[in-house]
Design a binder for these strands. Sequence first.
DNA 1: TATTATCATGATAATGTTTTCAAAATTGAG
DNA 2: CTCAATTTTGAAAACATTATCATGATAATA
Lengths: 335, 335
Amino acid sequence: MLPNNKTPTIIDVAQLAGVSVATVSRAINKPEKVSPKTLQRVNKAIDDLSFVPKAEARARAMRHKGRIGVITPFFTAPSFVQRLRGIASTLSKENFDLIIYTVDSNNRLQNYLSTLPLTGNLDGLVIVSLPVADEDVQRLLKFNLPTVLIEFPHPLLNSVEIDDEGGGRMAAEYLLKKGHTCIAFLGDTDLPEYSIHPVSLRLKGFRTAIDQAGYSIPEEFVRLAPYSQEQAQLNARAILMRQDAPTAIFAATDFQALGVIKAARGLGINIPESLAVIGFDDLDMAEYVDLTTIRQHLDESGRIAIELLLAHIADPSRPVQHINLPLTLIERLTA
Amino acid sequence: MLPNNKTPTIIDVAQLAGVSVATVSRAINKPEKVSPKTLQRVNKAIDDLSFVPKAEARARAMRHKGRIGVITPFFTAPSFVQRLRGIASTLSKENFDLIIYTVDSNNRLQNYLSTLPLTGNLDGLVIVSLPVADEDVQRLLKFNLPTVLIEFPHPLLNSVEIDDEGGGRMAAEYLLKKGHTCIAFLGDTDLPEYSIHPVSLRLKGFRTAIDQAGYSIPEEFVRLAPYSQEQAQLNARAILMRQDAPTAIFAATDFQALGVIKAARGLGINIPESLAVIGFDDLDMAEYVDLTTIRQHLDESGRIAIELLLAHIADPSRPVQHINLPLTLIERLTA
DNA sequence: TATTATCATGATAATGTTTTCAAAATTGAG
DNA sequence: CTCAATTTTGAAAACATTATCATGATAATA
């Protein structure tokens, strides 16, 4: 078709389309920055010439790689999804590729943490709801891969955190204010040994507030069960069938609060009349089922994490930041 | 060693070794052309800086890409998340990176579709619940980027589909069997003009089955509202407040079924005694709220799509496949 | 010792793409 | 219809490396 026998370059495309090379480059990499009309012309030229950008040259000219990695627990839990949503939406505006690394075992996390910084084709990393060990932190720093942690903080890395302990306290105070004194706690047990578990903190704050009010939670009323609906439901059922059943339950997670609600429904217990239920997270579904809960801004946490990360990529000398997101009590119909 | 916080270039190495960049380049690529003495100096400098020729490293990294892209609507809707979950879990076993491209406008979809085949450096692409135009299909084929479509099929590309029309029929038959004759339909309206909307198909199958049974759905009982809980709730409320309110509602989506349930609860209507509600999808949350629904295997669809994709990457000459996933009626407590 | 052949080296051009910055074109407000 | 604001565009610089070619150093020969 055109200047032939050599593989076409961006210049050929530009000529054929009657635009500058810059415009062609933009059409390929940031199509939204070029007018639809020219975009179409350029695309046509690209197709006509079967032009493929040369990876080598591309890598050379590129100042950044345009890729952000996110390590997240294998996403069964809705809360990860919501954080991810915040991340994805912020990132897509910024023209970064989003690479998801799902972790289903501690082993795999280790794998990622030891290889990712090395292969070095990431501009930055977000680690969601996973504790990272000191030596891994060191490695991240050594290969200066900008990193932001969500939910499990570390002093040497940027993080977006919430005040779990305060959240527990909020839940306790709310229930106390409503007149409850016989209260149970339902949490989960996926505790990595080498880090503080957010749920433990929630329990701690919760318990402290109740103690300070002059009451207490009997040991049998603190149940830790694997993170699943059925388990939560079973545990709630066990508690609710006792003679001395509590009048309120604080579930460390909305997800588990749903289990509690189902258990109550199964036993014919009215909510909120006979049993108050309060959750934690404010998942999308909390609204669907009118669950009273402590809201942590999940989407927001993702957004903030990305903004923090991008700022640190732009200016690596920026000091480490720890951002604390506020919690809000959302009063709905279950407590 | 060297103070920069930027990754070292060949220039840094040259400086440290006290030679020219040309010599460093030679030392790396044609060591026999440089004197043993300088070679040693250069190698030392390279080690000290842990220098990796950038472009080369990148080119290498790109040769074996190990990357699968997924284009998905900006994921508010739970059903995308569940498909994604199937995709992610299958992929992580296979050691492929998962790149997520979220689409929030038709425009952006276009961008991805024209750009990705060129520079995406992808081994394969999965497009979830988005219709792709003929010319884009052509481009994908031309640059032979193996692709699998989920939910919106195209004759020339592999796809994983479900029988929406049959699903509608199933819902109708179930409700008819339960003795309902006055039935409403609630769907959403995000219809891309250049493709068949799954929800329309569900309605079609639903209506046909009811017609065949000798009944019919009055026009006022077919409501299409934007995909959101509130809208669904509002519309359901409007229908339920009529004199001639239906005794059953088929929601084209579990998500919207939840809106119906809330509306009913708000009006003091008992489910399933006074109103049967049946959904479509079998989202996670369907189980939490005991929703009777038509199950399409969302996680499974993701898994199958990836398997299909990998098979086609391994053997590009494989003929195009269209896989149809079965639907199952899941009877729970709402109908 | 003078001359040439050989070899290691460095300065510089070339590579194909992206990015920057300022100019040009378009849109919006009054 | 004008002027400001915004968007789109092109020229040129930047990017990290390799290739080319001239130069200086060294070794070999007469």
